[in-house]
């Protein structure tokens, strides 16, 4: 039995790492806002960020394909500026994964910020800490478990994505051929041995990731009340 090409594995890990990093940067302010706002548009934003949970990946992929295609405003602009297309490229995959994995970052973070609540932040303000200071030194450490959960879930979910990748990225080795696509291709071409190996690898990996989350959740209980 030939060892399967490990290229898709590296590509997948890269995609997941970059997506997680981007989402932590973008998702944190969104989650913070959702946790603290009294705005009437809050449920609208909550619904939008949760959409990827319920939509079939093909629906999201279909719209992204249209939005990012060189004939669209965004895709056309990108082609003019960089000479490359967003569709069927690694960059396009990053855009798609970021949207697709959004709820896995925003929801745990929002829950964590809500658990921390306003009271420790008020206490920090009374000790002369400004808003950013309060976030960095009080809110973020107290929401540490939320950040951990959000990172792990986002990373793991990006690794497992298939439908969106297939629609937006296709199957280009080294560019968009991630592990789930590679498995699909092995099955299509009836190379079950390789498909088995990659599938089992992904299964074990996913289990270990979830195990890690649950173990860490036990080890680091949320700090409340003190």
């Amino acid at each position: 039995m030939a060892l399967p090409d490990l290229g898709p594995l590296w590509l997948t890990l890269q995609l997941a790492a970059i997506t997680t990093a981007i989402l932590l940067v973008l998702g944190t302010p969104v989650a913070w806002w959702l946790a603290h706002t009294g705005s009437r548009v809050k449920p609208v934003i909550e619904a939008i960020t949760a959409l990827p949970l319920v939509l079939p990946p093909t629906v999201l992929g279909f719209y992204l394909l249209i939005l990012l295609s060189p004939r669209s405003a965004i895709g056309g602009f990108w082609l003019d500026v960089t000479g490359t297309t967003l569709t069927f490229s690694f960059l396009g995959l990053i855009v798609a994964s970021t949207l697709y994995s959004m709820p896995f970052t925003v929801q745990p973070l929002q829950a964590a910020f809500e658990t921390v609540g306003r009271t420790p932040l008020e206490a920090a303000a009374m000790l002369r800490a400004g808003p950013l200071d309060r976030f960095v030194t009080v809110a973020a450490p107290l929401a540490g478990r939320g950040f951990l959960t959000a990172s792990v879930l986002t990373f793991a979910h990006t690794i497992g994505e298939f439908g969106v990748v297939l629609m937006v990225g296709g199957n280009i080795p080294g560019q968009t051929k991630v592990i789930s696509i590679a498995i699909y291709e092995h099955v299509e071409t009836i190379r079950y041995a390789e498909a088995h190996l990659l599938s089992a690898g992904l299964l074990v990996f996913s289990f270990l990731v979830l195990l890690l989350v649950y173990v860490l959740n036990r080890r680091f209980p949320i700090h409340v009340g003190g």
Binding site: T119, P120, E122, A123, A124, A125, M126, L127, R128, A129, G130, P131, R134, T137, V138, P141, L142, G144, H223, V224, G225, G226
Partner: peptide, 27 residues
């Protein structure tokens, strides 16, 4: 609030649980 220079002792103390006693004072 953080620019008023007001100290506040809350009924529920609101010590920071992620910092020890020394850490709270240092804060």
């Amino acid at each position: 609030p953080h620019r008023r220079g007001v100290g506040y002792v809350f009924q529920d103390t609101r010590l920071f649980p992620h910092l020890g006693v020394r850490g709270n004072l240092d804060y």
